[in-house]
Simulated scan of single mutants.
Amino acid sequence: MTLFWRDHRLLIIVHILQAFIVGSVLFLDPGAQGSSLIYAIFLSFLLLTGYLVYRYFVLAPYYRKLSESKSGHHDFKIEGNHPLILAHNQLLAHYYNQHQAEQHQLEIRKNKQVQFMTQWVHQMKTPVSVMNLITQNEADYHEYPALRTELKRIEKGLDLALHTARFEQFEQDFRIKSVHIQSLVQQVIQDNKRLFILKELYPKIKMNKELYVSTDPKWLLFMLDQLIVNAIKYTKDKGTHLLIESDLIGDCPTLRIVDQGVGIQAADLPMIQRPFYTGDNGRKYGESTGMGLHLVYGLCEKLNITIDIQSEVGKGTTVTLQFPKS
């Protein structure tokens, strides 16, 4: 209603001014009668009122929809046969179809990029696997242990690129299963045993052996790998340990990863989930892409896992994953 009066405010003002001018002219005419003047003004306002009432009822859906659009409604089609409403619907239909066509083209290009990235990563993994086999067969060569470490870093980078590309199509690439947490943790530790040895870091496992969660094992494995590798990467003191424990807390399966690393600056903690954000540690120690924790936070949201990261500089970081009730 407010929008209707705002739209017709100028028309009403002009009509009042017109009635005042015409009335003044007739009033100054000696032959004009006062009753005729009042009657003419009355008829003029009666016609204006009839016009406004007609226009309000005909265009009421239009003004109502415009008012609703400010409150978050997104269905902009308006019911009615008034030419203004029909033109409005035609214009919206035109832009909607154009937008859908652009979205379709963008989706095609994005899918091609994901497909290219996936194929490229798989192609790169083949020579890496071959080099791994060569270094394992020639274990006596003194430079091969360092080469295997660098090959492992390449594999981690390729996995990160692959999962980053697939993350945009997560809904098409996940399966919920009953997952044994301890088995996944042991698999991640086994995959990174050379990194543990290189850092002289000892995994300390306190797992509830009967703890299962309903989630996607492939994505959870990737998340645990990112979190554990981060804990290893930013632990500089040799001879320390990495604590990984799980248990039921308030009927919710909970996993904690506690390191004795350099910790995260308090100013960086609220921003570690942003893409490409490396923070103070990433600049100081390098080797950080800023995508690992971003993907972990995104996956936790999609898998309904609550993640909490607490850290203190110089003392270490604690990552807590709380899974939904079984």
Score class of each variant (00 low, 15 high):
Pro83Asn: 01
His74Lys: 13
Arg148Met: 14
Leu43His: 13
Ala146Gly: 04
Val114Ser: 08
Leu84Arg: 07
Glu79Pro: 03
Trp120Ile: 02
Tyr63Met: 03
Lys110Gly: 06
Tyr95Phe: 15
Val128Cys: 07
Asn81Asp: 00
Tyr144Leu: 04
Tyr95Trp: 15
Leu59His: 01
Ile134Trp: 07
Glu150Ser: 14
Val128Ala: 14
Leu91Val: 03
Leu151Lys: 03
Lys125Ser: 02
Pro83Trp: 00
His88Ala: 00
Glu143Ile: 10
Phe76Tyr: 04
Ala60Tyr: 06
His74Gln: 10
Val121Leu: 00
Thr126Gly: 07
Gln103Arg: 12
Ala87Asp: 05
His104Trp: 07
Lys112Tyr: 05
Ser44Gly: 08
Thr149Asn: 13
Thr149Tyr: 09
Glu102Ser: 10
Gln105Pro: 05
Ala139Asp: 07
Ala87Gln: 12
Glu138Val: 07
His99Arg: 15
Phe116Ser: 04
Tyr63Leu: 01
Glu79Met: 08
Thr149Met: 12
Ala87Leu: 05
Tyr51Thr: 04
Trp120Tyr: 09
Glu138Gly: 02
Leu151Arg: 03
Asn81Leu: 00
Met124Glu: 13
Ser44Lys: 07
Ala139Ser: 12
His82Lys: 02
Ala139Lys: 09
Tyr54Ser: 12
Met124Ala: 09
Thr126Tyr: 11
Glu150Lys: 12
Met124Tyr: 14
Glu138Met: 06
Arg55Asn: 13
Arg109Phe: 13
Tyr56Val: 04
Asn111Val: 04
Asn89Pro: 02
Ser44Thr: 09
Tyr54Asp: 09
Leu66Val: 00
Gln136Ile: 06
Thr149Trp: 10
Phe57Glu: 14
Leu46Asp: 04
Ile134Cys: 06
Gln119Thr: 12
Met131Tyr: 04
Ser44Glu: 06
Glu107Met: 13
Leu86Glu: 05
Gln123Ala: 14
His142Gly: 02
Glu102Asp: 10
Ser44Cys: 08
Glu150Pro: 12
Val121Cys: 01
His99Ala: 14
Ala146Asp: 12
Leu147Met: 11
Arg109Asn: 11
Ser69Leu: 12
Glu68Pro: 05
Tyr96Trp: 14
His94Ile: 08
Leu106Val: 05
Ser129Gly: 12
Asp140Glu: 10
Phe76Gly: 06
Tyr56Pro: 03
Ala146Ile: 01
Pro127Tyr: 08
Gln103Tyr: 07
Leu47Cys: 06
Leu84Ala: 10
Gln115Trp: 12
Leu91Met: 07
Gln119Pro: 03
Gly80Asp: 02
Leu48Trp: 04
Glu143Arg: 08
Asn97Lys: 10
Ser44Leu: 08
Ile85Arg: 01
His88Glu: 02
Tyr95Pro: 02
Met131Ala: 15
Thr49Lys: 10
Lys70Gln: 07
Ile78Ala: 01
His82Phe: 01
Ser129Arg: 10
Glu79Ala: 09
Glu68Tyr: 00
Phe76Lys: 00
Lys65Phe: 04
Ser129Pro: 09
Ala93His: 01
Glu68Lys: 03
Ile108Gly: 06
Glu138Tyr: 11
Gln113Asp: 11
Tyr141Gly: 08
Asp140His: 06
Phe116Val: 11
Tyr62Gln: 05
Ser129Thr: 15
Glu68Phe: 03
Leu47Lys: 15
Gln100Asp: 02
Lys77Val: 15
His94Gln: 11
Leu147Ile: 09
Pro127Val: 03
Glu143Asn: 10
Tyr96Cys: 08
Gln105Asp: 10
Gly50Trp: 05
Ser71Gln: 15
Leu46His: 09
Lys112Phe: 01
Pro83Gly: 00
Phe45Cys: 11
His142Ile: 15
Phe116Trp: 06
Tyr51Ile: 02
